[in-house]
Design a protein around this nucleic acid. Structure first.
Length: 649
RNA sequence: GCCCACAUAGCUCAGUAGGUAGAGCGCAUCCUUGGUAAGGAUGAGGUCAGCAGUUCAAUUCUGCUUGUGGGCUCCA
């Protein structure tokens, strides 16, 4: 082999390539013209390279990267962010640029400008981007020493970029220029602006520089890009479809709940149907907790301020608490249930034989969240937690955590939700000793390892009193919401001087775990509504069957049938209105009732109902007894897997 | 709390370049008794979010407040 030639597998075929050949030239020689056009970058091992980069020495395989792959799409979007920034710079020359990464479904770029951008600016920016695409300007990479780069950006007045370069650990940084637009960037990028085919600006938002609310508020433009117009259109359609599942819209349409913003912003008014759903969920939760050795308790809603000072909430959580003065004494509405449970545990002396003590409460808490943070059922100011506090000996901790994770997976599995678990470590604002924090954090990590869950760590994201495991569930448009939380706490038992008597007759300090499985019932139901698009499984549906009479002549039997079914524990409604059958079917269908039962003369004679399923299928005439069996089987269906059950009352 | 947008009938939304408002759905009454996604007629419903300001006149323009939506921050 000659010294200036290397063997490289290019797109699956081994080639001899002259040293110094660019990735792009190598692909151009190896691929068809059409295929080559779709190639955005090159991958060698784990490294992504610009097409203009020379093939690295020692690279034995070069893989073409296009917009079909997630890495290719990310790169395309990142380049689109540069193109957007270049367009904004052309239109608003004195804008300062900051950062513009690709994100899950698109990209954004944060600008500092004398005014905020608005959607009215989109048309002009998009037009300028299209112009840049037509001009087909190459992305040119250059490596600079840090000092040189700082001077370059300082000369341009780009102080955000100067700050970014200063934070880089390496001695050199790379910059990319797109025509006259120069940006600090690790790269890689598409070869030239003409490779961007389909993009759309979506929304504007304020965002703090480096995510810190003490910093300058920047103007962020969100946008997305795809490999083709068709894919972009499909994505925008999907978004539209997802909006139809929005729990706020369905909550109103299905008459589950509403808000009275004028009198109680961020607090839910549950309507009969929503409350029915909640009640069934609560009953089910209670039974599952009893089976797992939990005892239900209930503490007061309002407690004197001094107890919150003792617990540490006053120092750490005051801004989010509601206070009220009663007989010159300041009281606080509970933002958490722990204090009540601590006091219940502490009111008697416990033996090690009783541990672990598992105290559960469907606890209503109030937290004054900032007004801009409220969001339907997902983020409210008053909510109900399926909360529990487990008080145990330190050596029992890991097993308790394992059982909790098992419960999380059972419950979320039942509803078919996808979720991710992560461990959050000590935050800046916290109480407790270093040693306690380390012990608690390790217990969580060990439990995660034992169940083999992928270990994700959120540094500094723990509660002020302890580290935690959080569970995130996704809503209909891809936003992630925290549901389950498992928090180890060494400080509250200390503050409330909780003890148990060990086998040695001495008093010992127990460890406490705070945990919620669904998290908040409000948020959980919000996600459930979006997940099911309002078509709840039969066991949860507020109305399981709706009986419609064809004409007034069958009203009597319809009412009798409804009474009989209700007596059998089925949630039934009738629609006896003087309307055509088609009209009543349509309405019941839109209410997403699982079973629509029609009663005409034939059914009266047979003492039965004609059964139409929610999917529109008609399964014919059933006697009332047959229908009761049918619906019971349907209710039990989701519980066949796992150790849970739904007992038909 | 911060940035942008928005607030009209129970719901979804038109509208007024400043002269106090409309539709569809829903609701009520009547006609219609019709077999699986909308039969017809008539009618009731609005201090145009609240408070100021400009104006002969404000739902419309301006400011503030409250709330909502999308984000940031925060969080179950």
């Amino acid at each position: 082999m000659e010294i200036n030639v290397q063997k490289v597998i290019i797109a699956g075929e081994e080639k001899e390539i002259a040293r110094g050949t660019s990735c792009g030239d190598a692909f151009k020689a190896a691929l068809s013209g059409k295929r080559f056009k779709s190639v955005l970058a090159a991958r060698c091992g784990d490294a992504l390279l610009d097409l203009s980069a020379s093939i690295p020495l020692g690279c034995d395989e070069l893989v073409p990267v296009d917009a079909e792959s997630s890495e290719g799409l990310g790169l395309l979007r990142h380049s689109a962010a540069h193109i957007m920034a270049a367009a904004v710079r052309r239109l608003f020359p004195d804008v300062l640029v900051t950062i513009g990464p690709a994100i899950e479904n698109g990209f954004y770029y944060d600008f500092d400008y004398k005014r905020a951008f608005t959607p009215d600016d989109f048309a002009a920016i998009e037009a300028e981007m299209n112009k840049i695409m037509t001009e087909n300007i190459p992305f040119a990479r250059r490596e600079l020493g840090k000092k040189e780069a700082i001077e370059l950006f300082r000369g341009m007045g780009e102080h955000y970029k100067v700050e970014l370069v200063e934070a880089v650990a390496d001695s050199h940084v790379s910059i990319y220029s797109l025509g006259g637009f120069i940006d600090l960037c690790r790269g890689p990028h598409i070869a030239s602006s003409g490779q961007l085919k389909a993009f759309k600006l979506l929304s504007v938002a304020g965002a703090y520089w480096r995510g810190d609310e003490n910093n300058q508020m920047l103007s962020r433009i969100y946008a997305t890009a795809f490999g083709s117009e068709a894919e972009l259109k499909a994505y925008l359609n999907r978004l539209e479809e997802a909006k139809k599942r929005d729990h706020r819209k369905l909550g109103k349409e299905l008459s589950l709940f509403d808000f009275h913003e004028d009198v109680a912003p961020g607090m839910v008014f549950w309507h009969p149907k929503g409350m029915m759903l909640r009640t069934i969920l609560e009953d089910f939760l209670k039974r599952e907790h009893f089976k797992r050795g939990y005892q239900f308790v209930q503490g007061p809603q309002i407690l004197r301020q001094e107890v919150w000072m003792k617990s540490g909430h006053y120092d750490n959580y005051r801004e989010n608490m509601y206070f009220t003065e009663i007989e010159k004494e300041t009281h606080a509405v509970k933002p958490m249930n722990c204090v009540g449970h601590m006091l219940i545990y502490g009111s008697t002396l416990h033996s090690y034989r009783e541990l672990p003590v598992r105290m559960a409460e469907l606890g209503v808490v109030h937290r004054h969240e900032m007004s801009g943070a409220l969001h339907g059922l997902m983020r409210v100011r008053q909510f109900t937690q399926d909360d529990a506090h487990i008080i145990c000996a330190p050596e029992q901790l890991e097993n308790e955590i394992l059982d909790i994770i098992k419960l999380i997976s059972d419950l979320f599995g039942l509803f078919g939700f996808e979720y991710t678990l992560s461990v959050s470590t000590r935050p800046a604002k916290s109480i407790g000793s270093d040693e306690a924090w380390e012990l608690a954090t390790n217990a969580l990590i060990e439990a995660m390892k034992r169940i083999g869950a992928p270990l994700k760590i959120n540094e500094g994201d723990g509660a002020f009193y302890g580290p935690k495991i959080d569970c995130l569930v996704t809503d209909s448009i891809g936003r992630k919401w925290q549901c389950s939380t498992v928090q180890v706490d060494f400080t509250l038992p200390e503050r409330f001087d909780l003890v148990y008597v060990g086998s040695d007759g001495e008093r010992h300090r127990p460890v406490m775990v705070h945990r919620a499985i669904l998290g908040s019932l409000e948020r959980f139901i919000g996600i459930l509504i979006e997940h099911t698009a309002g078509k709840f499984p039969t066991w949860l549906a507020p109305v399981q069957a709706k009986i419609l009479n064809v004409t007034d002549a069958q009203a009597g039997f319809t009412e009798e049938a409804a009474k009989l079914l209700t007596g059998a524990g089925i949630r039934v409604e009738t629609d006896l209105r003087n309307e055509k059958l088609g009209y009543k079917v349509r309405q019941a269908q839109m209410e997403k009732v699982p079973y629509i039962l029609v009663v005409g003369d034939k059914e009266v004679e047979a003492k039965g109902v004609n059964v139409r399923l929610n999917n529109g299928d008609n399964i014919g005439l059933k006697t009332l007894e047959e229908f009761i069996e049918l619906i019971k089987t349907d209710c039990d269906e989701p519980f066949k897997r796992g150790g849970m059950s739904y007992s038909f009352s």
